[in-house]
Design a binder for these strands. Structure first.
Lengths: 225, 225
DNA sequence: TCAAATATAATAGTAAAACTATCATAACGA
DNA sequence: TCGTTATGATAGTTTTACTATTATATTTGA
């Protein structure tokens, strides 16, 4: 890697930008591991502070509460996915090919690399699978939505939906189909692992490849004229 | 209504069957209103007990904790939907028609009737929209799944998937498509209301009709041979 | 019908969660 | 070096999520 990358995130996502300090980066890095390990419900700032040798009060200076921290992490993830889609579809004009690349990227198993030091992409992806819906399934969704914390997810949805519209301008549900598939992309992995009767994806085989096949099938069939 | 109906639910869903006592029925009835009003996160047995003029300890005799109560309510809902599908598809042999009826029923706005006294179906449906995913998005999902608490949802999924298989035996993803659509059925209503850029469904118009059109489109297109 | 079983209520108590506040000190930047 | 800012240390509050005990009311069944 020649350039170190940094994600540009909406400032409504934090009280203090965690990317600008040592403690902030530690909070983000270790929260990913801790949430993955014990689950979001059991996760507390107290436990996190012990983990990183700091204090609760210090963490509260970065994030209003643990829910906001989760929203930050999930938002980081969707930003990352969109960044990769933009990168991989660069110079490609065929909308079908762009859509295939996007489906590949939203179903792909992430591997850790060092382009974003301090973030374990693979563990973060696990958090997306297990916890991401909790970012918006909350009583104050309208309030935090006004602040723009879901902008990254919406933008990704818009991008993918635009490929669908290019393929078939008459298709009536590009955004719905995109959000349904973005959700299904992690839902099906969850079901395969925990509630296998809700899915045809077999945990024993290559989950991500099957997921790609599944989503491609329903997307391209739905888009047929 | 000639007969009073009672839902037959898995006994793993409760410590003591709430349908067998006055207090139990009050717990179920009032919890629906309270969860809808303040959201599951803010909901506590303390608040519920105040509401119904009882005590925390008494409620704990019916449900291990508030999560189990939520699982009970959501399970009741899916059982109800499957009961209605079974009823409405009775004597119909055409799988396409059965599937259409099922899609209609999972996207339909429920109205309160008195066939199940003490349950407000319409408010319960709101809870499904806002909270149902929290039943399984929990660290102990495998543990509670072993007890069979998700049997109702799986059974519904199986039923609808079987219609798909009848229509096209070669379709590879009947269960996945069903679970994706069952989830999308409430997800899209949520998005229309709170995150409209993630959906093509317009909150100003008939949300349920649009949802039916959307799901029909992707399901029947996916099933085409 | 009376005794026994069972359900509910009343009360109390605990550990942890989810914060908020204050003050001292360390580091950093102009 | 002086002032600002970040962090740490400490303490305190309210609420949540329980558990335990005892008293009283109600049901049931012998």
């Amino acid at each position: 890697m020649i350039a170190k990358l940094q994600m540009q995130l909406n400032s409504a996502l934090y009280l203090r930008d965690p990317q600008t300090s040592d403690l902030g980066q530690k909070i983000v890095k270790e929260s990913i591991f801790l949430i993955d390990k014990i689950g979001f419900e059991s996760f507390t700032f107290k436990k996190l502070s012990t983990q990183i040798g700091s204090t609760e009060a210090s963490i509260y200076r970065y994030f209003e509460n643990k829910h906001r921290l989760l929203v930050y992490l999930i938002s980081w993830y969707w930003n990352y996915v969109e960044y990769r889609i933009t990168f991989e579809t660069h110079n490609i004009s065929d909308p079908e090919e762009k859509l295939r690349i996007a489906i590949r990227l939203i179903t792909n198993q992430l591997k850790d690399d060092d382009s974003f030091p301090g973030i374990s992409e693979s563990v973060l992806q696990q958090i997306v699978i297990n916890e991401s819906d909790k970012t918006y399934l909350t009583k104050n969704v309208d309030e935090i939505n006004k602040e723009g914390v879901f902008r990254g997810y919406k933008s990704l949805c818009e991008t993918i939906a635009s490929y669908m519209i290019e393929i078939n301008p008459d298709f009536e549900f590009p955004r719905s189909l995109t959000s349904t598939c973005l959700e299904a992309a992690h839902q099906q992995v969850f079901f395969a692992a925990h509630l296998p009767r809700l899915s045809d994806i077999k945990n024993a085989e290559d989950v991500h490849e099957q997921n790609y096949q599944y989503l491609s099938t329903i997307i391209f069939n739905s888009l047929k004229k």
